[in-house]
Design a protein around this nucleic acid. Structure first.
Ligand SMILES: [Mn+2]
Ligand SMILES: [Mn+2]
Ligand SMILES: [Zn+2]
Ligand SMILES: [Zn+2]
Lengths: 139, 139
DNA sequence: TTAAGAATGCAACTTTGTTGCAAAAGTATT
DNA sequence: AATACTTTTGCAACAAAGTTGCATTCTTAA
């Protein structure tokens, strides 16, 4: 195995390009979820803004990353676990945490979203839970 | 009581202006959460875009409306219940539902967000839950 | 009615996101 | 290794979303 990013791309039947490898590398070495802006900052001199948009879109569709909702108009992205990548669709059922202090958003991979009962007539397809507060680094 | 919107403004110690009354009216008569864009569509000929931004911001701070996170870069807003308005900060603990079919986002006022256990070191301040699927009108 | 303070509209600007198309790079085949 | 085919990229041009400062207008309270 030469390169983890390369493997992910091949497993998802995507062609291996420099920008895709670089963006995956950024995700793989990040300890928190990233907004488009974050990625742009890390590689805008190398790759076009449009390419980053398109790459994130592709990664989402292939189940390589998932997006995390927010109230600040900054959708953030994080790597999915193996299951999403191999099955081609999302199986993310974990809670997300956004720290009000350091601003970082993280996946709490071990915290499952609890079940919720919807009123009659509503059908659930996907569920998202985002907790705000103070993270363990900032407490 | 001449006007419900006027009352809300007075209770929040806000001056009563035409644009604020109009925007409140829009919320009061809406059956779903509204994005900035939705409000703009309903009153852009009357009021400036900037005024709408500032009004929503003010309403948020006063606990008149709350915002609903999303993965589509369209934060939506809905009226808070009395408790938020009178106490000046948010007490919204209900689940939100976004229909993939009609696109509407609604407050499920009767569905409380279930408790969740965070890992050691994390402190919760706020919690958001958004469910996607098919709503009762679209089923 | 008036004076002080707050909200609004406007202009100018920045940031974010989208689209079409030609050039470049990647992949599969010989 | 060269080829042909397909996909991805960069660029340009644009559209949409959001921000800021400031002069004018509106609200409120005295
Ligand atoms: Mn996650
Ligand atoms: Mn709500
Ligand atoms: Zn933190
Ligand atoms: Zn619906």
């Amino acid at each position: 195995m030469k390169n983890q990013g390369e493997d992910i791309l091949k497993n998802s039947a995507l062609s291996v390009t420099a920008s895709r490898k670089r963006i995956l590398e950024i995700f793989l070495s990040a300890d928190n979820a990233l907004a488009h802006q974050d990625i742009e900052t890390k590689c805008a001199e190398q790759y076009d803004r449009v390419t980053i948009y398109r790459t994130l879109q592709t990664f989402l569709e292939k189940g390589i990353i998932h997006n995390i909702p927010s109230t600040d108009n900054m959708v953030r992205y994080a790597l999915c676990n193996e299951t999403c990548i191999t099955s081609g669709h999302h199986h993310d059922n974990h809670v997300h945490f956004k720290c009000d202090n350091c601003g970082k958003t993280v996946c709490l991979d071990d915290v499952n979203i609890p079940a919720v009962n919807l009123p009659k007539g509503y059908t659930m397809k996907e569920i998202n839970m985002v907790v705000n507060g103070t993270c363990k680094s900032c407490k």
